[in-house]
Amino acid sequence: MESWFTRRSVGELLPGDHAWLSYHGREEHDHVIGAFLRDGLAGADKVIYIADDGRAELPDLRSRYRLEPETYLRSGQLAILPQEETCLTRGVFDPARMTTTLREVLDRAETERFRGVRVTVDMTSAFRRGSGRDGVLECEARVEAAISPSTMAMAICQVDARSCTTEELIALKERHEVLVGADPYFDDGVLSITPTFHPRGLRLSGELDGARHAVFAESLRKVVDRGGEVHLDLAGLRFIDLGALSMMAGAAMHLDARVVLDNPSNELADVVELVSSRLLPWLEIGDGEAR
């Protein structure tokens, strides 16, 4: 029952959004959080990263976006706050302290005349400390209370999905109204192409025909370059032409990658089946699960 949540790409986040990201690896983390930080720094937002183990957690802004973090740290637009100083008391997660920190940060940003405030905090290790789970959940409720009414602040709470149980993830997710995901590689209102990380691939929505083969080829190349099995989530795809199917098969054939078409509509699956017997032994239909 995910219909209670709003899904937004990181570029669509709005002030007042208290968003949730459960990532499945460094690549996904850096892709989403990197875009969140870049959008803030390139705009005029105060950007606050509450980190467990300091700088190492930050996506590499220099290689990704040619942004120099030092410049922004010096100017005060970027702040990296250790969790010890912001939300732990004697090594145990302390919701009250976290809330105080957050309120201070928001107030200060306002007086410093930033356009907005972006906060992100990785809850993964907090979860593992002392009264972790309950503390984190309480904290999430308080963050929600602080951010939601704000007209200038937005926050992303992150957790490494691989280090939590399914129940913990569900409990955390339910504390958030917005699920944040990667920005699309391409979106012109007719077709959107968004990278996915678990499984690795692309999510296609809308209509894909010859007019958009070039952008599709470029996106496909990006994901194939990442290596391994490629999943194309077609649940939102209303139309695909034979040329694009052929490009998918071509990618699989030339790069020796497995290309799996997940959740196609019945009509789309029929077309794939009709032409697949001989031409497209390289493609297979899947259900979104990596194998």
């Binding site: 034979l242 040329g243 098969a249 077309v271 009709l274 001989r278 031409l279």
Partner: peptide
């Protein structure tokens, strides 16, 4: 005639005829 699986040329018109 179904195109050779090793080559992707000739796919379009064959696909149209299949449909």
């Amino acid at each position: 005639v179904p195109p050779d699986p090793g080559s992707l040329s000739g796919f379009g018109l064959w696909g149209v005829r299949m449909l």
